[in-house]
Every structure is written in C-alpha cells, then in structure tokens.
Amino acid sequence: MSGAGDREAVFPTRQSLGAMKNKLKGAETGHSLLKRKSEALTKYRAEITRRIDEAKRKMGRVMQIAAFSLAEVTYAVGGDIGYQIQESAKQARFRVRTKQENVSGVFLPQFESYTTEGNNDFGLTGLGKGGQQVQRCRETYTRAVETLVELASLQTAFVTLDEVIKVVNRRVNAIEHVIIPRTENTIKYINSELDELDREEFYRLKKVKSNKQRDNNAAEQEEKASKRRGSDKENADDPGATDILGEQEDQDVIF
C-alpha cells in the first residue's frame, strides 16, 4: 500500500487513472466556479446588510411619525378608538404578494405590497369628529407599513442568502479540503502502483532474458563438450585399429 491518507477504492489501472484525472479537473473547475459564486453572494449580502441598516433607521423614524399621528387621532376623536377598530377589522385591505428575484442562481423572495380596493372596514370610524385626522393617520400608517414590508423583504432575502452562502462555502471547503486531496491521493496511488507493475515487468523480462542466455550458454557448452568428447572417442575406440603389439594371444601356427 502506498499513498498515505484516504483515497478512493479503485483498482490501479490506466483506465481509472484517466477517470481520476478527469475527476480532478472537474473538481477544480467546480471549485473555482463555486468560489466565484460565493464571492458574488457575499458581496450582495453586504449590500443587503447596508440596506437593512438604512431601512431599520427609516422604520424608526416612520413609526415615530405614525405613532404621533395616532395620538392626534386619539385627541381629535376624544377617546380610544382601538377597540372599535379591532372589532371592525374584517378583510385585509393591505396585502402582500411574494415574488422571487434571481441573484446568481439563488432565488431571493421579495414582498410587494398592494391594496385591494373596494373594502373599507373603517368607514364609520371618526364619523362624529376627527375624520380628517383618521384619514391622515391611515395614510401615515399605510406608508409606515410599506416601509415595514420593504424591510421584511430585505430581511427575508438576508436570511435566505445567509443560508445559501453557508451551503456554498461548505461545498467550496469540501471540494478544496476533501475531494481534491483525495483524488490527488488516488492518482498518486494509481501511479505508484502502475510504476511498481512496470518495475516488476521489467525485472521479469530481465530475468527471462538472463535465464535464456544462461540456458543458451549451457547448451553451447554442452555442444562443445560433446563435440570434443566425440573426437576423443574416435581416437580411443576405433574398431578398425588392432593391437600390433599383440596383447591378444597369437594363433598357433601349425606346420
């Protein structure tokens, strides 16, 4: 086993080496894309944060004005109108509609306020006196609520964006610190394993060659030796050559 650290469970073949190299390339492309996305979103979030801050301040001012105009109403009507208003609220005139805005592939919700015409729950409020103030107060509060809706959509966008940025950053980090090193490890492992195989193969070839040579040499030697021995034998036991010196018994000569 070579290559410290974890790697993917693959067989060290040239094919999987190619696949791993492709994977590494893909991971690097993805990493740079996600990184850019994360940067764009972070920039946008900073922008939203600034706008939230502004809107919160504006809301403080607007709500103050609205509260003041309500106080005017209370004074003009000469009594508390809260109960009457709470009882007569039936159908919302002021409503919101949600749509989505696409920021670098992230859908951010946005609220859009609209008023439905035709129903007016508070037609009789301030009929006796203070009708004008009531009318003005309604207008002021409508503007205040519009500010609130704007703020709410910024805030929702911020929450959503925050979530998305977290996810994207997590992915960027995962690719950078897990997937790329692991793929590199795997490539290293495959390479070393292939080298090992190459060396083995080379050694085997060498061994085969040397064996062959040795065998050849041996065979040559053998041949030479047998040749030499053959000539000796020729000298040694030629059946035609008789002993002249007469080791054999002479045949008796009979006269």
């Binding site: 609205a66 709470q86 508070f122 205040a144």
Partner: peptide, 8 residues
C-alpha cells in the same frame, strides 16, 4: 395604527 392601515 396598523389595523388602520388595513392589514387586519
């Protein structure tokens, strides 16, 4: 105030 704006 908010009800006066018509959100009720």
């Amino acid at each position: 105030g908010l009800l006066l704006a018509g959100i009720g």
